[in-house]
């Protein structure tokens, strides 16, 4: 068990995504690519070879015209807490300590240069949140010039994934230190790129243990649920939807079972 550094306050960052607000525009995806130096190729239509730290899925209720409904589901890395707050499915399987659980923030790290590409974590992740660099990334025609120094570019043969823009937390923390009050990081000081990018305000991000942060209240909503929650992965990403079919589409239920929010007994 990792010891908590004595000089840092423990936080538990999490995200709440309101599926009733998401329009499926993919601004979050592009903002993420741009923020995190995600590579691209000319052929990206095979999604299982395409690197996305957050991916917006389109799901439908399966009813025929005109009763069809569509819901867009943005899915970053779930930053699972896993068993006993610290054992996400992907972390303990890594043979080379390229990924660990950052106890002070609840974020699952991934250090690509340490990774040697065994892809065990990818197999362990039920969300397909971890992406492999099948090709060496190339930024053609001066495009290297837009790369951000905050996030190290990856190379062929390593896994990468969403980090909840940890470098932004570092940035906020650095400024807080500079200002002489290391613990004074406000909600607005640290927001992920996708949260900031969402033009519809569907994504909320913050410290889930801090009552001053919006996520603290939102995740307690009756309509909050998590993706594949029943696997016991304890994701730090919550979703909101008032539509029952969306709840059903996001976790596995036996025929007689009902999603918690609609299970008769109030949640």
């Amino acid at each position: 068990m990792e010891k908590l550094p004595s000089h840092t306050k423990a936080r538990h960052f999490g995200m709440v995504i309101d599926l009733d607000k998401c329009t499926g525009c993919a601004s979050c995806m592009v903002a993420c690519y741009s923020e995190n130096n995600v590579s691209f190729r000319d052929e990206e239509s095979i999604k299982l070879l395409s690197i996305n730290w957050i991916q917006v899925y389109k799901i439908t209720n399966g009813k025929p015209f005109p009763d069809t409904e569509v819901c867009y589901l943005p899915q970053p890395c779930m930053q699972c807490d896993g068993k006993d707050f610290g054992h996400p499915p992907c972390v303990s399987v890594c043979p080379a300590v390229a990924t660990d659980f950052d106890t002070p923030t609840g974020i699952v790290s991934q250090i690509p240069v340490r990774c040697f590409g065994c892809r065990y974590c990818m197999a362990a992740c039920p969300y397909h949140a971890r992406k492999f660099n099948w090709w060496d990334p190339v930024w053609p025609a001066d495009m290297e010039r837009y790369l951000s120094p905050d996030v190290s570019p990856r190379m062929r043969g390593v896994i990468e994934k969403c980090t909840f823009c940890y470098h932004r937390f570092q940035r906020a923390r650095q400024q807080a230190y500079y200002k002489g009050d290391a613990e004074n990081i406000k909600e607005a000081d640290y927001q992920t790129a996708c949260t900031q990018a969402c033009p519809s305000g569907a994504i909320t991000f913050g410290d889930m243990d801090n009552p001053d942060h919006a996520v603290y209240t939102l995740k307690k909503s009756r309509y909050a649920f998590r993706l594949l929650e029943r696997l016991g992965t304890q994701p730090s990403v919550y979703y909101l939807s008032t539509r029952k079919w969306v709840h059903r589409a996001c976790d596995n239920y036996l025929e007689h079972e009902e999603p918690a929010a609609f299970a008769g007994k109030s949640a």
Partner: peptide, 17 residues
């Protein structure tokens, strides 16, 4: 030094990006 000063060697993200 971190272990000495803060009781923890920290996790990967503390010093890596």
């Amino acid at each position: 030094c971190h272990v000495e000063q803060t009781d923890s060697k920290g996790s990967c993200f503390q010093c890596h990006k």
